[in-house]
């Protein structure tokens, strides 16, 4: 990712540092906020996100847990129901499969099942995505699972600033929010506000304006789409990039506005294509005011319908790369 010069009130931080800063600011501002997860204390988190927080806030509020994802999320649900603001770290988003009952049957539904009489303000942070050679059980992109569940909100930050601002908004939110961070982005740097500015949930961001084509990309595909747009510009193709940032609730209007201008849409996700999240965006566009503006079929560039493999050349082949986005975008513009 490009590192822009820091604007006033910002500094350059990594994505992981930005997440840590959000946690620290939230814990400083609100004593109800506490963290729980595996190896988040002295170890500092499997990806180093929580770092020194245990030394700053103590073991009660930066709570190391046994390897017990279902218990961890269940305990967070109970704490959230009784006045606390737990922020859970699930070490790899794949391990949410171990905790699905508490996420889907409990956290997501309690507010509704009780007719609005209780809230479950919990945040579940989990790193997803491939690219680390960790193979099929440590590399998935599971956002569609969560986005399909009424009662959950789903966030996928793609920049350090958003990693901070969206997390702060998620902690404020009275609903369970799943924040899917990306392992490959943790070391990326960018300008991050010093203050605790929130990025409201449900607002997309136009990362790059474009005239010929709208690329909507999520997670790590956002920086890849931006790199692709840069190359396409060299070929005389003006590709815009929209980052939904929040998958649920989705800011459909920002996407539609862009499609109305460009008339072409390429959807890019790392997750497997079948029943993937971007299919929902395709359906939303097909049923919208933007439909009549389309000059080309909607393109969908996704991960292959395979588990993420181990061998680096296989892993790379399983998910979209910058050159794949360039090729698909070029085809859409040239053929239509």
């Amino acid at each position: 990712m490009t590192t822009a010069p820091a604007a006033p009130g910002t500094r350059t931080l990594t994505y992981a540092d930005a997440v840590r800063e959000a946690l620290a600011q939230a814990m400083t501002a609100d004593e109800r906020v506490f963290l729980l997860g595996e190896d988040i204390g002295t170890y500092g988190g499997a990806f180093g996100v929580t770092g020194d927080l245990v030394h700053r806030f103590g073991e009660e509020r930066v709570r190391d847990t046994p390897i017990s994802e279902l218990g961890i999320v269940g305990a967070a649900v109970g704490a959230a129901l009784t006045g606390m603001r737990p922020v859970v770290e699930i070490q790899f988003s794949d391990f949410t499969a171990q905790a699905m009952d508490q996420i889907v049957n409990q956290a997501a539904k309690i507010h509704f099942m009780l007719g609005g009489a209780a809230t479950v303000p919990l945040v579940l942070r989990a790193p997803g995505g491939s690219g680390t050679g960790a193979a099929a059980q440590h590399s998935q992109s599971l956002e569609a699972w969560f986005a399909h569940v009424p009662g959950l909100k789903v966030v996928m930050p793609s920049t350090p600033a958003d990693a901070k601002g969206l997390l702060l908004a998620a902690i404020d939110d009275p609903n369970p929010v799943i924040v899917l961070e990306h392992k490959l982005l943790y070391k990326d740097s960018g300008p991050v506000p010093e203050d605790a500015a929130r990025v409201p949930l449900g607002t997309a961001e136009v990362r790059r304006p474009g005239a010929d084509l709208t690329v909507v990309a999520t997670g790590v595909m956002v920086p890849r789409a931006l790199a692709a747009a840069e190359r396409l510009a060299g070929e005389g193709i003006s590709a815009g990039v929209v980052d939904p940032r929040t998958l649920r609730p989705l800011d459909t209007e920002t996407i539609l506005d862009s499609v109305v201008e460009t008339g072409r849409l390429l959807l890019v996700q790392e997750a497997p294509k079948t029943c993937g999240y971007v299919a929902e965006i395709a359906a939303a566009v097909a049923g919208s005011r933007a439909f009549g503006h389309l000059r080309a079929p909607v393109g969908r560039l996704c991960g292959l319908d395979v588990p993420i493999p181990y061998a680096p050349q296989l892993e790379r082949a399983a998910v979209p790369q910058v050159e794949d986005i360039v090729r698909e975008a070029r085809d859409l513009v040239r053929r239509w």
Binding site: G71, G78, A79, A80, T82, Q106
Partner: peptide, 8 residues
């Protein structure tokens, strides 16, 4: 586990 969380 929800009861455990309430106690936490």
């Amino acid at each position: 586990p929800i009861a455990t969380g309430a106690a936490l």
